[in-house]
Design a protein around this nucleic acid. Sequence first.
DNA 1: AAATTCGCAACATCAAATGTTACAAATCGA
DNA 2: TCGATTTGTAACATTTGATGTTGCGAATTT
Lengths: 145, 145
Amino acid sequence: MRTDSRLSRMLHVLLHMARHDRPYTSEQIAGMLQTNAVVVRRTMAGLRAHGYVQSVTGQGGGWTIACDLNKTTLLDIHRAVGGRHIFAIGLDNDNPSCAVERVVNSAVADALDRAERLLIGSLGEITLAELAEQFYAICRAELKQ
Amino acid sequence: MRTDSRLSRMLHVLLHMARHDRPYTSEQIAGMLQTNAVVVRRTMAGLRAHGYVQSVTGQGGGWTIACDLNKTTLLDIHRAVGGRHIFAIGLDNDNPSCAVERVVNSAVADALDRAERLLIGSLGEITLAELAEQFYAICRAELKQ
DNA sequence: AAATTCGCAACATCAAATGTTACAAATCGA
DNA sequence: TCGATTTGTAACATTTGATGTTGCGAATTT
């Protein structure tokens, strides 16, 4: 399949929403992401189901952020968008009858598991607030020039 | 796309070849992997290009292992099969004009890079000889029962 | 009532691995 | 040399899950 960019996309949107006091429509968000409003609704439905954003229908409606930036991590967003596959690499057969294959699977799965735990750990340590602060730091640096 | 199982498959084949003094035909290997002989030839062509295996055409031909098990790591095989994408997850846009998106990309890419380095490091530390030894250890344990 | 906006189903597209078919080329044995 | 075996390779089909698209109903505001 294509590479799953839902995490990056949603983080991008959430940081914009954090600096905006009115709702963004799906069309506006689709413009930010250079995609389609239906893709936005579909992906953000996962965030809404976990309470990270809210949506309102009708005129003047749209999407607003609904979570504490200090308590929401990149891992929370990753899980909310439903990303199942982290790796493009995998085992050939999860329950091999061949003992050679079981040894191979065990070694490869072990390496993959360690990398996955590191990635999950990294994502779990970064909050939306920290990303927002990085953005403000860049803005302040550019103002000084 | 589907998950890339070329590394696991080739490791499986290499360990079988290491215990076999005659060539395996692509058909025999396809039988081990429950796939098609053309898939086998295509994938193993990468290993051959790096000198890890040899192939001989014609009657009595087939594939033989041609590397030092003690010097060949899982990383060598991973690279030989041409696996480019390690992650199913990625950035939405590699060169964003939006400063918010650049902050997001930097954080996500950083987490992915660290996990990738750990995985590459793990694969580079395991030799084919070590996998073969794990297999023999299992065989010895089963004989004792 | 009209315009706006989300919700959602249904289907199309994309990308890369995997699967399949067909045939040429090389090698071995009789 | 002939025939069987086996690899080499091109061309095309299939699979899988994210992404893209169209259409229309439902909710909300004015």
